[in-house]
Design a protein around this nucleic acid. Structure first.
Lengths: 218, 218
DNA sequence: TGTTTAAAGATTGTATACAATTTCTATATA
DNA sequence: TATATAGAAATTGTATACAATCTTTAAACA
């Protein structure tokens, strides 16, 4: 059995807290405080902070503490544009290496996504969403590409707002699902251009949705 | 005056040692050893190691030490392909925002690149090369894009082999310079397609050069 | 009232001791 | 000779004390 390091535990717990909005953008977090909360010394907390800063989730201000990142509209847009570029490239690279086995797995993921929604399991929903988005990069086999796709994906997850009415939205208005299906359809047809188009429009639709929900005057 | 943290000093010194091949791919490096060499405690060394691992320059093996990354041919190829994608996108994004001032700066960088070569200042040459490559991403103003471009650029720098005969190669056979000029020319003409093509061919030419020089049977 | 300044407090930055884990080495055994 | 094994050694992982630095507070002053 491989016992997990405290550093890794701290990293995951903090990240989860940000994703679930228990730590909100702009909030200040000190090493001491987290150290007390998680009942471990500051050493592993510091290591976790460093990693989270590298991923753009917190900002480290010397002698002040860590602050949960509070991205501007432009930054959100920048990230989504970059995701379009990278995930499109991933799809293009992977499209001729995908086997029936891969498509079966993708179909399975799509089903699981619906199930997670029906079960109102938000964390699971996000996890599966990540898997779907990273799938082409995984098949492409470029680990640098995969790493960056996953990093941006995770970053975006932290700013997807968990609305009160998220699960009361009728299934057919949850755009994610049909949009993902569209991408998979294009991949199955080995139509790289269509896949890229589907990825772009899905990404823009998510960004748009996000922008609307984030806006104060809405 | 802003005194630099030991952690930052350690990070830079280790990175430089890798770039200058004082630490070679596959070499084992322990926290204790670096701690003695740099005459500081293990704490800042550990932090530096974490950062270097995140950037893909070393691999951390629990209870064994850190190992300077020893990339496969495929990994080199993957990185250069990704660089093509990202730097092309950067050029496309920046091309209509570039002012005469920007072009003047770029021309200046090209001149400095030649000068560094003539002065046989390899480190300066690499530094300027990095600036040139990152320039469009900087103008584009997408900090996520810039960060990744710089990271991959730096990663590649660590595997550019400093040949004995590097500075004896006649200037007109150092492909970098004319290829960079080609990219700038396309940017000046606001010809995104040409810029992308020039970036791609420059990147492939660098990769090719690298592959030839790295090959054992050559 | 607003501004400067000094001291107190808070927080990170670093060193170091020790614990946990793994690797290495030498010995015993077949 | 090859393999298993136990103990020693090496190395990272963690806790903690203290140093350095920055922020806050409050008092003094104009």
């Amino acid at each position: 059995m491989n016992k997990k390091k405290n550093e890794a535990i701290a990293y995951e717990k903090i990240k989860r807290a940000i994703m679930l909005k228990r730590l909100v953008p702009g909030q200040r977090v000190t090493e001491d405080w987290v150290s007390n909360e998680l009942e471990m010394s500051r050493t592993p907390i510091r290591a976790a902070f460093t990693k989270l800063e590298n991923e753009g989730l917190i900002e480290l201000v010397p002698h002040r503490g860590a602050f949960v990142c509070s991205p501007s509209d432009k930054e959100l847009e920048d990230v989504f544009n970059l995701r379009i570029v990278l995930e499109s490239y991933a799809a293009e690279s992977a499209i001729h290496q995908m086997t029936d086995e891969h498509f079966k797995e993708l179909d399975e993921l799509l089903k699981e996504e619906v199930k997670a929604y029906e079960d109102k399991d938000y964390e699971e929903f996000l996890r599966i969403n990540s898997h779907i988005h990273a799938y082409p990069a995984k098949v492409a086999g470029n680990k640098f590409l995969l790493q960056e796709v996953e990093r941006l994906n995770q970053w975006a997850d932290c700013y997807l707002i968990l609305r009160d009415n998220f699960y009361t939205t009728p299934m057919d208005q949850v755009l994610s699902v049909p949009e993902h299906r569209e991408v998979v359809k294009a991949l199955k047809k080995r139509d790289a251009a269509a896949a890229k188009k589907a990825i772009e429009s899905h990404m823009l639709s998510t960004l748009n949705d996000l922008a609307e929900r984030t806006s104060i005057f809405n």
